[in-house]
Design a protein around this nucleic acid. Structure first.
Length: 828
RNA sequence: GCCGGAGUGGCGGAACUGGUAGACGCAAGGGACUUAAAAUCCCUCGGGUUUAGGCCUGUGCCGGUUCGAGUCCGGCCUCCGGCACCA
């Protein structure tokens, strides 16, 4: 069989007949895969992600749904700009060339996309809407500008959002992130913190761990703010605590190095400067005594105030009361600086013991807490908070870890922020009818640290939309996560239609099944949930959650190979466990996520040329269930290829029989007929239950084994072959189409319905009854199905093997599990 | 440290609400076809033991519930992922 030509033939056929465009008169199903960044060519991660999505899309189509299955390009971003600096290619040229190439690759994989809805985020028709959303958010106060300390990556010469800093490093390049003060645009995602959190409970179709990561990131905590008067001063120090029950145990105070009182108390103290410079970089707890004291408003004691590097300015009030007896961090600090530790909560039935070896963070009863003594601490939280509010020295508050989303990027290849700065009018939004603010094309890339846009005078110089005087454009561009926060909505309408057509959105949203990598568990998915709510509030959509079900597929991994002299090696650099460059023994490393740096990658192109797309699709679905990591195995690919070949040969050798046999209205009772129904059932259930394609494929393999193993009557064989091809078609669509045609059916398996199974026909006449004695399998007897318990007991008890096992023992109890087994409990 | 998830043959993985552990595939071994090889086809394949039928044992470890536990409960161990001075 000529795989290459067969695959091309059907890809052409699909395209020509527009089989994957939506058609409006059936129930919809929106199947979406996370769109790729056009980095150059597709990798195995894409292949896996898109294969999973494609099987779902094709399956749902066969089940009669009007499937929206789009694809596009997340095409703004830094690599294009880096390529421009390196190779002197314009980012647009580089990007569009990559898109063209990758699109060809996607087509070669046989993915059933509706390419007429293709979205490219770097096109002005697309990003115009980013700007429109920005203006709407600006009007609502959801987009605002402020100066703040930001995460700065020197390598990328740009700002990063909190979510984009991983272990203190840039999420993209791994460079150490530093703090820098900058004027930035922010989206007020914190306005939606509570809603995003409670919304988590409605995400029933999402993997639990993703939901919990979102909850964690939002990080709600309920607590109390309390004012501590400063001794011999009119000032107060406001702190936030979740443990007001421990307030009588507060023996000192800590404030953040950047807290206003820190410099007020210490001035230009060099020690303080050091703390600020190394803020967030040192794990050790370091403090400086301010020589000032605060008055504990409840105990009325004077307690010292420290500046401490472990207190965060951005969270709560930037100041805390320290209760070393009941907080591990405070305990560590108190130990180091020899500060008092006073236990005010004791576990029930335990003596007070001031010599703690660890902070006690558990529950207990209050002591040394005046009128609150003997209260259980959970109740004391309530009581003391209430007391504080009544005395007017504080209030209960809710805090979130979630910060506002900084979206300014000092880069060229992104969506311009539609703002003009005017000397007289200040910050002026670009009027809606002047959108889009288009990125200028003629631009120099020096690779320096100044934003390239700021150097394009023709772009920057603009009249103020309000007063007409000379103004300057904002030269920062938007974070590319803005682009991907709503692309799923753009897909709902064709390019010719209005991007935010309400009818179209209503028809297709929300996404029924979203498929992508876990790496976006907080970033993209949280931003999209936020954006959806904003769009709801400005009347574009009428739902809260964009993605009904989410499937996070595992990584594609492969064994690593290392030569002591030449380092990481590609598979083809190794012959018989030796390095082909130096002949040294190659070490097999652990199996890791495929990456260019470790050279454990496989190029999809090579595989397509060698085996064809169907084999790759089949293997990547068979080797592991979609949510688990997949270990690449060249031999496993051979196995998948073998399966398709065996099916091919079966059809080839029986072509005449298949063509001439008529199975209209056929209902057989052969073993193969039963097996066929059982297979349809198994495959359908495997897909429906959890998209466990690996077991679906295993079932098909079983059916093929049955077909090739024995002689069958023509009708049963044809029935089995046809069902088999239909079942296989979402997984290996090219071969399925070809075999469908070859075996005499009308062209176009993609238009066929999913085969139905008949539960009755799938039922066996006889079952293998397992006979256990005291829970151990002792015999297996073939019996008719549908026998009642007594009949089964009778058969089991008269079985020779069973009789000899029971011997002289006494039968105490008999348990019958219908259709499966019988357990005889005996004692001797 | 906290929060999630997972530990099953040589390997990837099956086993639905507790009911035959190891489906399916890979690797390995044996055989058929072939001058030979490749391809293909057939057989074996957790461990131990037995002349055989068989028996014993086995799902990370220890205990429990149950007629019956990979599955449920309690206590550990290991690995992976996320968060990490969030007061």
């Amino acid at each position: 069989m000529d795989i290459q030509n067969i695959e091309k033939k059907w890809q052409k056929y699909w395209q020509k007949n527009k089989l994957f465009e939506v058609n409006k008169n059936k129930e919809k199903f929106y199947c979406l895969e996370m769109f790729p960044y056009p980095s150059g060519k597709i990798h195995m991660g894409h292949v896996r992600n898109y294969t999973i999505g494609d099987v779902i899309a094709r399956y749902k189509r066969m089940r009669g749904f009007d499937v929206l299955h789009p694809i596009g390009w997340d095409s703004f971003g830094l690599p294009a700009e880096n390529a421009a600096i390196l190779n002197k290619v314009h980012p647009a040229v580089w990007t569009y060339e990559n898109i063209a190439y990758m699109k060809k690759q996607l087509m070669a994989m046989g993915f059933s996309y509706d390419f007429t809805r293709e979205v490219t985020t770097c096109s002005p028709e697309y990003y115009k809407w980013n700007q429109w959303f920005f203006l709407k958010m600006y009007e609502l106060g959801l987009a605002y500008r402020k100066s703040s300390m930001v995460n700065w990556c020197n390598d990328c010469a740009t700002v990063l959002a909190n979510e984009q800093v991983i272990d203190g490093q840039c999420w993209r390049c791994g460079n150490v992130v530093v703090q820098k003060e900058l004027e930035q645009w922010f989206f007020k995602i914190t306005n939606y913190a509570e809603e995003l959190l409670t919304g988590c409970d409605t995400l029933i179709g999402w993997p639990e761990h993703v939901v919990s990561m979102q909850k964690n990131w939002i990080g709600k905590s309920i607590g109390t703010e309390v004012d501590f008067p400063i001794f011999e001063s009119n000032e107060r120090l406001r702190i936030f605590t979740t443990r007001p029950d421990t307030i009588f145990g507060a023996t000192f105070m800590c404030i953040a190095p950047t807290h206003p009182l820190a410099s007020q108390f210490l001035g230009n103290n060099s020690e303080l400067k050091g703390l600020i410079d190394n803020y967030g970089k040192i794990d050790d707890k370091i403090g400086i005594f301010t020589e000032h004291f605060a008055i504990n408003p409840l105990s009325e004691e004077n307690i010292p105030i420290f500046v401490a590097n472990f207190v965060l300015m951005e969270y709560g009030t930037g100041a805390i009361m320290s209760v070393p007896a009941h907080d591990e961090r405070d305990f560590e600090f108190a130990r180091k600086y020899g500060l008092a530790v006073r236990q005010v909560i004791i576990p029930k039935d335990v003596q007070v013991d001031d010599i703690l070896t660890n902070a006690y963070i558990g529950e207990g009863v209050l002591v040394k807490s005046k009128q609150f003594n003997n209260l259980f601490n959970i109740e004391a939280i309530e009581a003391i908070s209430k007391y504080i509010e009544e005395k007017g020295i504080g209030k209960r508050v809710v805090n979130y870890k979630l910060r506002d989303w900084g979206i300014s990027r000092q880069r060229y290849w992104g969506c311009p922020i539609p703002i003009v700065y005017c000397k007289t009018c200040g910050v002026v939004p670009v009027p809606e009818n002047e959108l889009p603010v288009v990125l200028p094309e003629d631009i120099e890339f020096s690779g320096g640290s100044v934003s390239p846009l700021a150097q394009v005078e023709s772009f920057c110089r603009v009249k103020c939309p309000r007063c007409g005087a000379d103004g300057r454009r904002e030269t920062d561009t938007m974070d590319t996560f803005v682009d991907s926060s709503w692309y799923f909505i753009r897909y709902c309408s064709t390019k010719e239609e209005d991007a935010l057509d309400k009818e179209n959105i209503k028809r297709f949203m929300p996404v029924d099944q979203y498929i992508g990598g876990v790496e976006h568990a907080v970033l993209h998915l949280l931003y999209s949930r936020f954006f959806t709510r904003v769009l709801r509030d400005i009347g574009v959509v009428d739902f809260d959650e964009p993605f009904r079900r989410l499937l996070t597929q595992g990584m594609v991994c492969k064994e690593t190979l290392k030569c002591p002299e030449h380092g990481w090696l590609f598979t083809d650099e190794v012959k018989e466990d030796k390095c082909i460059h130096c002949g040294k023994e190659v070490l097999k490393g652990r199996t890791e996520k495929m990456s260019k740096s470790k050279k454990n990658v496989i190029d999809p192109n090579v595989l397509i040329n060698k085996y064809g797309a169907d084999t790759i699709r089949l293997f990547s679905l068979f080797a592991a269930p979609p949510e688990k990591d997949l270990e690449w195995s060249d031999q496993g690919v051979e196995g998948a290829s073998r399966f398709l070949n065996r099916l091919w040969n079966l059809v080839e050798t029986n072509v005449d029989t298949l063509k001439k046999t008529d199975i209209k209205g056929f209902r057989g009772n052969s073993g193969l007929f039963k097996k066929t129904h059982q297979t349809i059932m198994k495959v359908t259930e495997s897909i429906e239950r959890d998209y466990h394609f690996n077991t679906a494929i295993a079932a098909m393999m079983e059916l093929l084994n049955e077909m090739t193993g024995l002689q069958h009557d023509d009708k049963s064989l044809k029935f089995a072959v046809r069902a088999m091809i239909l079942l296989l078609s979402p997984f290996a669509p090219h071969i399925a189409e070809e075999l469908w045609e070859v075996s005499g059916a009308e062209r176009g398996i993609s238009k066929q319905s999913w085969p139905e199974y008949d539960k009755e026909a799938a039922k066996e006449d006889e079952i293998e009854l397992v006979v256990q004695i005291n829970g151990k399998v002792r015999s297996k007897i073939m019996v008719d199905v549908g026998l009642n318990d007594d009949q089964i007991k009778g058969i089991a008890l008269s079985d020779e093997r069973v009789i000899s096992f029971i011997g002289s023992s006494v039968v105490k109890k008999i348990i019958v599990v219908k259709g499966k087994l019988i357990n005889i409990v005996v004692t001797n």
